[in-house]
Design a protein around this nucleic acid. Structure first.
Length: 447
RNA sequence: CGGAGUGUAGCGCAGUCUGGUAGCGCACCUGCUUCGGGAGCAGGGGGUCGGAGGUUCGAAUCCUCUCACUCCGACCA
């Protein structure tokens, strides 16, 4: 993409309304624009990141055996009247009437609907287990939205719902989601620590929150520093291997980790040596629940067992805050100059900086590099605007693409171009010859 | 939902107390000089002051109502 043709309204100063760093940076980079309290338009830069995160979530859900569906944002109230939650949900639920004066609502969640879908489609234990998920916009009319996309009213969320024939099978479904969450967040460059959570008003038998560390997190967290030394990437696991899945879950739940709600200082001191005790703040990016039959019994969500009798299914629900993750990743990965995107979610991999637009040699070199990278499938944002070098550097650092390829007349005189790693600041210089007249430039960009 | 505050140019703000017909910085446009870490000079365009009503010869400024947004608290992915 050529920057001269792109839509990326950069702000030089922090907008007044933004409190936290991710909100400021997202506005300054032109990733989002606020349309109403807690409701945002996603501009091209932000949209690209959102889509990448969504896709990683999708791939890992699929890999763990979940099946994607899509349910509407606008739901009939009747469904919620049946579950008794239409009145219970309160003002957080946005209620709407259609032209026939029927009560509708903008879904704050889809539990009722997915349960209905499941009941209609599954009658026999032979059809279990199943895990259905969707990635959809939801609306909760929060009293006080804030922190940009971290706590908006409209937000993109992945919800999965598992249905199993027995407690043991349900636990395995829960464990699979647990492991898939580790994989999902690790792929985004995050260490999301699983912490035992209050099941809260939703209730159920088991629940874990996944939190990433950030100063602006909404929860206090206490955990064993061993988490940082664990291998977060080696879960190339066979999800059907029950024992292997259990082992990973056990590994990650054996260490102490708790939010302030569940924190027990005495236990913390007992289980974790002083030098390993870490305390900080965390942002919740995922939350999983195992309900058992808590909901299926009252809702009559049953299947016919081998003996012909109806048995309530064991269910679980699993959420990931997709839009929230955009802000969360920035909170966890930025510096004074701007965002530092982890490569898998970066809007572009490479920022190509033409330091002297209009200089024939520089223009030609940049164009060659641009074409070579695009030809190799490397996403590149080419700053071909007629602007001063300093401004270009500042903008490129601000938007935080992982690598910058810097080309100017001064370097080209010696047949040299420069590659900078945004995260480490490391720079290396390569010659045009080394890059095979730019054709192999992608080989020199570290991945 | 309680408390506090703010709405003036794309962004950040001054002007409001003490009414006289809107200003600054950045951004933007033109030209010249500059050009490896947010350049300099000169010239220029853009707002009717959140909205409605009222007071007044005259309202960004005073009064009434209203809408929106922000912050603190309680709540929450």
């Amino acid at each position: 993409m050529r920057l001269s043709h792109y839509f990326m309204p950069i702000l030089r100063d922090d907008p007044k309304e933004a409190e936290i760093v991710s909100h400021k940076l997202m506005l300054r980079c032109g990733m989002i624009r606020q349309e109403a309290a807690g409701s945002y338009s996603w501009l091209p830069m932000g949209f690209r990141v959102l889509k990448k995160i969504e896709q990683i979530v999708r791939e890992e859900q699929d890999r763990a055996g979940a099946i994607e569906v899509l349910m509407p944002t606008i739901q009939p109230a009747d469904l919620w009247r049946k579950s008794g939650r239409y009145d219970a949900y309160g003002k957080e639920m946005l209620r709407i009437k259609d032209r026939h004066d029927r009560d509708m609502l903008y879904g704050p969640t889809n539990e009722e609907m997915i349960t209905d879908i499941f009941r209609q489609g599954v009658q026999s234990y032979k059809d279990l287990p199943r895990n259905l998920y969707h990635i959809q916009w939801k609306f909760r009319d929060e009293v006080r939205p804030r922190f940009g996309v971290m706590r908006g009213r409209e937000f993109l969320m992945k919800d999965a719902y598992s249905f199993d024939v027995s407690r043991e099978a349900g636990q395995h479904s829960y464990n699979k989601m647990f492991v898939s969450y580790l994989r999902t967040f690790a792929r985004m460059g995050l260490k999301a620590v699983p912490m035992r959570a209050e099941t809260g008003p939703i209730g159920g038998e088991d629940s874990h929150e996944f939190l990433i560390l950030a100063e602006t997190g909404e929860s206090g967290v206490y955990f064993d520093r061993d988490f940082f030394d664990m291998d977060w990437s080696a879960f190339d696991i066979d999800y059907d291997d029950v024992a292997a899945v259990v082992k990973v879950v056990d590994d990650f739940t054996s260490k102490y980790a708790a939010t302030d709600e569940k924190h027990d200082p005495a236990e913390f001191e007992k289980r974790v040596s002083e030098s390993h005790r870490l305390a900080g703040r965390g942002i919740e990016v995922g939350h999983i629940f195992f309900f058992g039959t808590k909901y299926s019994e009252p809702l009559g969500c049953e299947v016919q067992g081998p003996d012909g009798k109806k048995v309530p299914v064991h269910s679980g629900s699993y959420g990931i805050g997709v839009s929230r993750l955009v802000g969360g990743i920035i909170e966890a990965s930025h510096d004074a100059a701007g965002i530092i995107w982890p490569e898998p979610v970066a809007p572009f991999k490479v920022g190509l900086i033409n330091l002297k637009v209009g200089d024939a040699d520089t223009d030609a070199a940049c164009l060659n590099i641009y074409k070579a990278l695009e030809g190799k499938g490397v996403e590149v944002l080419y700053d071909d605007r007629d602007d001063r070098p300093g401004a270009k550097f500042a903008v490129m650092d601000l938007i935080g693409l992982p690598y910058q390829v810097i080309v100017g007349p001064r370097g080209l005189k010696e047949d040299k171009i420069e590659i900078k790693n945004r995260k480490t600041g490391a720079r290396k210089t390569i010659t045009v010859q080394e890059a095979g007249d730019y054709r192999n430039i992608s080989d020199f960009i570290e991945y």
